[in-house]
Design a protein around this nucleic acid. Sequence first.
DNA 1: CGGCATCTTGAGTTGGGTCAATGGTCGTGG
DNA 2: CCACGACCATTGACCCAACTCAAGATGCCG
Lengths: 228, 228
Amino acid sequence: MPLGATEDLLKRLEELVYVRKRIKTGATLYHNGSQFHALYAVKSGFIKTETLHDDGRAQITGFYMGGEILGFDGIAAEKHICTAVALEDTEVCIIPLDRIGNNDHGLNKLQNHFYKLMSKEIVRDHTIMMLLGSMHSEERLAAFILNLSHRNQLRGYSADHLILRMKREEIGSYLGMKVETVSRIFTHFQEQGLLEVHQKDIKILDMAGLKNLISNHSSKPNLPSKNQ
Amino acid sequence: MPLGATEDLLKRLEELVYVRKRIKTGATLYHNGSQFHALYAVKSGFIKTETLHDDGRAQITGFYMGGEILGFDGIAAEKHICTAVALEDTEVCIIPLDRIGNNDHGLNKLQNHFYKLMSKEIVRDHTIMMLLGSMHSEERLAAFILNLSHRNQLRGYSADHLILRMKREEIGSYLGMKVETVSRIFTHFQEQGLLEVHQKDIKILDMAGLKNLISNHSSKPNLPSKNQ
DNA sequence: CGGCATCTTGAGTTGGGTCAATGGTCGTGG
DNA sequence: CCACGACCATTGACCCAACTCAAGATGCCG
């Protein structure tokens, strides 16, 4: 989720909210069903959120890296509807939501910021719905890589060198496909000269080629619908 | 999107926000890319929102009926990222967002309500990601029908009699499948004695059977992932 | 160096897509 | 009131993208 110029917000938050928390690789920050207490801003590290279905199926709903905020799902019912797990040692800032409501200190802008953040999360979700609902596997993976690249860049890192924090299975869960498919597509992209892949170390060789893959490919399920 | 006991909020809004708007069948409330001005509460009627991809592909991201609020996607960048189209003659209340920010009149609770509504939208989106990412077509359609039924019930109507406001193609776009598949599954459900289908008029004959279909069926893409 | 987890690759199957034809339903005009 | 045409829904036959199952390969950690 590209947060853009949220840096100022984060700085202001740091002044207000000094409570930090460290989560070790594999540990959970909150659980599906647990009471909602606060939002969390990722300081460093990497977190995945996943929803569990009754029958055991899981869907990863998001990956969060430095500068991004998670936990918005918990506000609605005051309990979380997904589980947040650290994929590497991670440090978060805890943001109790009531702080945001009490705007005695001219924090009105903060409120607006939060509306925007939540809206951004909604926009992100719509993008993923688009991915899942109307793109082929190759397009989804290309879009995923490009998104990670973009976020890497926003955080001041290279746009064409990524180190994946999640395993293939998790990419698959996020993008709605099986591990084997993810793996095959990585191989394929490498054969096409789009990527150079060494396990979790990815170099983007042909950014334009990847982008092209998304916009030019033909449709899967749906055509534009001119209602009426 | 089940909004539950939002009735009181709507009532209070009505006092504040007397601006109404009527949208005829097929007309749009706002467009992809247009400036964000306000949120909209559906008074009566039915609205779909759809995102357009550059290459012409479309994905329907939501259906909104009486008592539900749309437009949250526009807050982030102050422009809408989807298009809202009325599927039948519809009346909405216009909710300019700045009203929510200015809480001189003890509207703090209103703010919190809005956080909750946005969070609910996020939760809803996660549910759909789950649908699209890890369920088979039959399960998706079953979940869709059950969701409509539930919302119908919340609004005081029958739980087992629905009149679909959208066409098959739109259901397909929302659920990530083609019209033909939607149609075949309706036929199949009818053969199974789960539904009685006459065009857009749907009677649910076996609610339990539909629910069962969702939780008991085996997985498609992903198994639970016990990280580490 | 061995054991375990993750990733890759292959072969075979299938759910759902494509294409094409038919059947309903509704609104409009003669 | 009926006929025509437009749009939508259904059905069938065929096909392919992605899944399943089954080895291997690779890498990691004790």
